[in-house]
Each structure stands twice: as structure tokens, then as C-alpha cells.
Write a protein that binds this DNA or RNA. Sequence first.
DNA 1: CGAGCAGCGTGAAACGTTACATCTAAAACC
DNA 2: GGTTTTAGATGTAACGTTTCACGCTGCTCG
Lengths: 329, 329
Amino acid sequence: MAKKGNNPTMNDVAREAGVALGTVSKVVNGIPVGEEYRIRVEKAIKNLNYRVNSYAQGMKSGKTRAIAVIMPNLVSPYFASLVNSLGKTLAARKHYMVFFGTDYDPDQEQEYVRLAEQQKVDGIICLSYNPRLELSEDIPLVSIDRYFGAKIPCVSSDNYGGGYLAAEKLKENGCRHVAMLRIASKLPHEPAKRRDGFVAGCEAMGLACDQMNLEDGAPYQEFVDFLHAHFHNGKLDYDGLFCVTDSVAYQIRGTLKEMGLRVPEDVQLIGFDGIRKFGDMELVCSTIVQPVDAIAETCVNLILNTDPGQIPSLLCLPVRYECGGTTLK
Amino acid sequence: MAKKGNNPTMNDVAREAGVALGTVSKVVNGIPVGEEYRIRVEKAIKNLNYRVNSYAQGMKSGKTRAIAVIMPNLVSPYFASLVNSLGKTLAARKHYMVFFGTDYDPDQEQEYVRLAEQQKVDGIICLSYNPRLELSEDIPLVSIDRYFGAKIPCVSSDNYGGGYLAAEKLKENGCRHVAMLRIASKLPHEPAKRRDGFVAGCEAMGLACDQMNLEDGAPYQEFVDFLHAHFHNGKLDYDGLFCVTDSVAYQIRGTLKEMGLRVPEDVQLIGFDGIRKFGDMELVCSTIVQPVDAIAETCVNLILNTDPGQIPSLLCLPVRYECGGTTLK
DNA sequence: CGAGCAGCGTGAAACGTTACATCTAAAACC
DNA sequence: GGTTTTAGATGTAACGTTTCACGCTGCTCG
């Protein structure tokens, strides 16, 4: 019979089963114990509806199964799918996720890193572009998309390679003169390398390449203006466009249609990220796909692996090209 | 001077500061203490780089500041923005979020509810349509968008009212004959009431209303087929469409354009949810906006309030209409 | 001037677990 | 059969907090 309101403890179980406290602990933790004892304990656990108190566990062992995930928001589909994958990967490893959204606010980012340390999580997975974020040294920490120096491993897509690949694909599809549409963050981060890769790719392919760098926060209209400035007699100066983000690409596609341009017959279009869904809506666009699941898995491995081997300070995971029906020939 | 590797404890701080253990505890918890003592303790805390061990705290008090959030995924923008808001609201109340993604899998949902109980969270906020989910009784629990009976408070938008409002708005804009495009879930949930509200609204307004109920999982193409079946000589049978989801509405708008129909001149279009952003992309569509922030706040209040007053078993929060430029006249 | 009281710092006990050193009893060996 | 070995159950000592009864100091009031 279970006790009143307060939860039963291991001691209660031990008493109920007529065994010692330590024996219950062993059963709970799957440490081999005499058949007869195990059965008695298991029965008592069921009777009392006993559940271990993970805080007592955590206090003793110093280990909790919690991993903090610090991320600007969940509204950006890339972040959302990243967190989604992280959750699955952690669950598969019997860990769970404590989530913090920062809205890019440096103070909040800093506070959450501190808070995570205080909550005694087993590790931190952090995506922040904040250049002067002070990161923990006591707790395993992995950064995504932002290199914080050799001490903190950073995981990201191969953004440079992705940019290069985009250039290759445009060339393959017969483009001669292309433009890159980009939202330029003031903060340093790995995704910025998409530009370098694309420029290098264009150069290697002998592909003429213009750049339109929209300042972070500037209205989308500036992209429209840019396109119109390069639009004469119903013809665009470019036969290919590379958008550094899928969401920009989708928007640009709409704009191109409104300008009376056909995609991909008149202009070829390629995005970056591999975001395929928006709610119930399937999106189609040629894109460079970020390996979100692999990023998540790599982060979790780095955090949980106690393998003392040399840990790389930067891990770039290969991207892949995916053709989306109507955007590239 | 800080100790070697292991973290300093309150005892270390007490020794360093030359005060009693209890005094340190008071300082840490903001309980008034003699000025001189407080300063000594604070200095010692800084010296030793002391941080409280929240697991020891949790064990003593039985309270942790953790709230579990159980949700199908983060890929749906509605869920994502909900979780986003929940995170902010919880942070403002000095709590933090343990996130679990279930992918609608009943076994996972059940497992996570159990796990959350075990982790001794202070409360659970859960969004699941699973009809036979066994919910905790020991821990405060709030459900979103799904009524589980009088014992579990359920928070949702006023879906019925939203459907009704959509009908009103279409009528106001001069529609005569409208259709509702809907994805019909097999599982019971509050959002299903959008249909009832819309039907009731149309009836009250004297507005002819057809329904197209797409089975969950069926391809979008069926919506297209439906529209084409009601499309004769360049004219659609309907002068207004209500999509039960914004993401459907955006897709439908594309389809309408491809059919050569102008929105809103030829057909008026209204969605539901109030999803405004997709990455860097601003979306525009007339819609019934769900009060996501209010939902989050209400959930958190219900969980944290120890107010023994009568708790409603269903809380429907008012939605509002928002006109999105080019979709409704 | 002394008794009483308020304010406040003190330190021990307790929270529920794990780990380890002990101890018991049965098995193995000569 | 007696002794050694060993498997395995036992119970105690932490882990780092919070809480609370206690006792000290110094102030107030008669």
C-alpha cells in the first residue's frame, strides 16, 4: 500500500521488500542481484509506485542526464530543425534537453550559459554569434556555426564547400553570369563562408559573379530594387541566382515570377539550408542541404564522449545538393 | 584561492568568509543578513567562484525550477512559436524548460510523461492528441489544444470563435459562396472546432459554404483537384476560401495564381494561425491569429500558481483577425 | 540598573541517493 | 570435516543544500 501523499523513497521500498537499502539501489540501477531479491524489490517498487529521485541521484554522482541547448530562437526553421534533431539524438542516448532561447541577446546568452553551469548540466550545446561570450571551461561545451577558438569544438556544415558546390551546379546548368543574394550579418560565424566558397567556385568555373549584400535588418525590398536595377527590356542581367538562405530563395522566386521571369528557363535559382517544409506546406527549391541530423549527432557525440583522444576544434560536415523540380534546369 | 578542480561548496564559502553555513545559505537566497556578513560572504563567493548546486537544492526543497514541455515537434511553425513563447515566459519566471519532442508517437509521449515525472519537474505542459495518454496526477499538468477531461486544464485558442470570425470577415467582404479547405485529423483536438465555428458562422450570415476535408496524410494535390473541379470557364465557383491553416493558405494562394485567379479580386482568402515568418521571409495573408503568447502565459500561470481556487477545465483565449494586404479586399 | 525581548548568526539534522567497506553464509578445496 | 575462498547482502558515510531550534548580543522598558 502506497504512503499518503509524499513520494516513497528507496528506504520505503527496502522496508516493504524486507531487504537492505543498497540492494534496492542495485536493482534500480540494473546491477546483478539474487533472483529472489530482485523479484521482491521489483514487486515492492510496483506496490509503492516508486520512482527514483533524479535530484538525489544527480547530487551523489555529480552527473545528471541533462544537456543544455542554447539557441537564438525556434522560429527560424534551421534552428528549429536543429533543436528537433538534437532532442531526438539526446533521447536516443537517454539524455534530455534543457532549452534556452536567447533572441540573439548577448546578455541572455551569457546568463543562460551561467545558468546552465549552475544547473549542473552534463554539457552545453550552444549556437551564438556573440563575439565576446564567455564560455564555460568546467563543463563540456560544443558550439554550432561559430568558432570560439581552439578550446571549444565547433560543429557546422561545410559552408565553404556548399558555396563552391552552388557555383558548380549553376555552371553545370549553363549559367554565364550569376549573382549572389546575401544577408550580411555583422557577427562572425561559419555560414559567412558560403560567400567565400561561392566566389571561389565562380572564379574556378570562370563564372562572372555579382554580389548583393543586404545588411542585416534591411528590408527585403532592397533585393527587389537590386533585381529591378539589373532588369532591362524584360531581361535580367543574370541567368543564375544564389541565395544564401532557402527562405530568401522562396521569396526571390515569388519576386521573379512577378517580374514575369520564368524559373528556371529564364533564371536559375539555388538556395541554401535544405528546408523542405513549412507546416503542412511542402516547399520545392534547388538547394544546398545542411546535414542537420549529422550536426546534431556530432554535437551529442562530442559532449557525451569521454574519449580523451584529440578533439578537433572545427568539424565541417559535408553538404549535398538537392534539385527541387522547378528552380534549376 | 579556489580549490583544485572540484567545485567549492557552501561549506568552503563559510570557512573562507569565517561565517556559519546557514549564513551563506541566507546570502545566496537573498534572505536579509547583517551588512558586514553579507559583504564577507559575497567576497568569498567571488573568490572561490562558488555556484550553488541546484541538485542539492532540488533535493532538499522537493522543488526544482524545471518545467517539462512535451510537443510533437518543432518543425510546425505553430508548435515552434509556442515553445518559443513558453521558453520566454518560463525564463521570466525564473524557471527553465525541459523539452521533449514526440513526433506524435503515442509510446514516446507516454514515455516522456513518465520521464518528466521521474525527473521531478515542477510541472508538465503537454500538447498531444493521443486519446489514451495516461497523464500524471502527482504533478501539475496543463494540456494545450486537447481536452483530457475535467481534471486536466486545457488551454487553447477560441477555435470555434475563430472559425466564426472567418465567416464574418468573408461576409463583410462581400462573399456569397465560400468553401472551407481543411486537413481532417483522425484524432480529437480543439482546433477541429474551427470547422464548427465556420459552419455556424456561414449559417448565421446566410453564406453558402462547401467543405473539402483532406484526410490527414493525403497529398496536397487533392486540394488542387478540388479547386479544378469547381473551376469552369476561367471562373471559380467560390468567391471566398477559408483555409484552416496558414501554411495551407499560402500554398493555395500559389495554386490560385497558377490558375490565373487574382487574390483578392477574384477569390478572397483567409487562413488560420497567424504565422508571419518563415526564416527571413515575411509572409502576408489575411488570417485568424492565435494568441500564442497568451497561451504560453496562461499555461505557465496555471502550472506555477499554487492558488487553490477553482481551476477552469477549459480556457479558450480570444483570437483576432489580421488583414494581410493582398488576400482579402 | 536589571529583567525581558527582539534580532540575528549558528550549526546540526535531514533530504534520497550511491559507493564502499563489512559481514554472512554457502561453496570449494584438500 | 575443517579451512579457505567468494559471492553477495548489508548498512553507513558521504553528496551540498535548506531549515530550524538554539543561544548570543544588545536594546528597551519599568
